[in-house]
């Protein structure tokens, strides 16, 4: 019977993840570990599959709106991919308890970042690397093309390295770190950093998913219903989102995230 519940649960996870701009991993890993009692390593591996599916499936829609900066995505993917290599090595040496605590702390960080008001500050000058690689670009806004520059590209790359580490350890897309690097540090416009982050997430997740897959940690019994369920849920969420008032839902969800974060941390401490 439990096997029947995982598929609709994944649809719900994908639905709310899409509505609230949170990856399915943030929802599905706690569900698999706290409710279905699956070992966190299998849960992390299954979650990465769903991230690849949703990102790769929606990549063309990110590009059509002319918001995705493909060149910037490729440069920053160097950071995330090599971060994923480090993250996988760390994940194999960490005990399950540590992974629970790390995930709980990440949920608290996500809740804080989701509450934080994002203020857009655009870069005045272009970093020399952005100049050489032509990473600066423009995006459409109310019928006009707005040009933007990029600051502090090396620091953005370093943050992406840590984003890759967390992605591999926790089974998340690390979208929050990517947005922090792009709009927070590199001063990319918010719409561009969101689109570029979503575009990059599939490659970030694939880096460690491939390693987990070859190690035999991606179990089709859970990865299959999770992947399909999250794709369906995310698609439904995208359809419904324009019609819903998401702000009150977001506050409720942040509250739930904090509760689940505490549960994960306690599970890690108590074993």
């Amino acid at each position: 019977m439990l096997a029947l519940i995982l598929f609709p649960t994944s649809i719900i996870a994908g639905f709310f993840g899409s509505l609230l701009g949170l990856g399915g991993g943030v929802i599905i890993v706690p569900i698999l570990t706290l409710y279905f009692k699956v070992d966190i390593r299998y849960a992390v591996a299954a979650s990465l599959i769903s991230i690849i599916a949703t990102s790769s499936g929606a990549a063309s829609s990110y590009l059509k709106d002319h918001l995705t900066n493909v060149r910037l995505a490729l440069v920053l993917e160097i950071g995330t991919v090599f971060g994923a290599i480090t993250g996988f090595m760390l994940a194999t040496s960490l005990k399950s308890n540590s992974l629970f605590i790390a995930f709980g702390l990440f949920l608290l960080f996500s809740a804080f970042m989701t509450l934080r008001q994002k203020k857009e500050k655009l870069a005045e000058k272009n970093h020399p690397w952005a100049e050489k690689l032509q990473l600066h670009s423009s995006y459409p806004e109310r019928g006009n093309w707005i040009k933007y520059n990029l600051e502090k590209v090396p620091l953005g790359l370093i943050i992406m390295y840590f984003a890759g580490i967390f992605s591999a350890i926790l089974g998340i897309g690390s979208g929050i770190f990517k947005m922090l690097a792009m709009d927070g540090v590199m001063k990319t416009p918010l719409k561009v950093s969101s689109a570029t982050s979503n575009f990059m997430i599939g490659v970030t997740a694939a880096a460690s998913a491939g390693a987990y897959f070859l190690r035999g940690d991606i179990k089709p019994e859970i990865a299959s219903p999770v992947a399909i369920g999250i794709i369906i849920g995310a698609w439904l969420g995208a359809k419904v989102m324009p019609k819903l008032k998401v702000s009150s839902l977001r506050i409720t969800f942040i509250g739930l995230m904090v509760i689940v974060a505490v549960q994960m941390i306690l599970k890690g401490i108590n074993g």
Partner: peptide, 24 residues
Amino acid sequence: KKMALIAAIVLVGLFLSFTQGLWV
């Protein structure tokens, strides 16, 4: 060629990451 090299570095990184699953 610079962007092709950057994409190639990402590709090498992906392969290195995958092979970890064989020996870790």
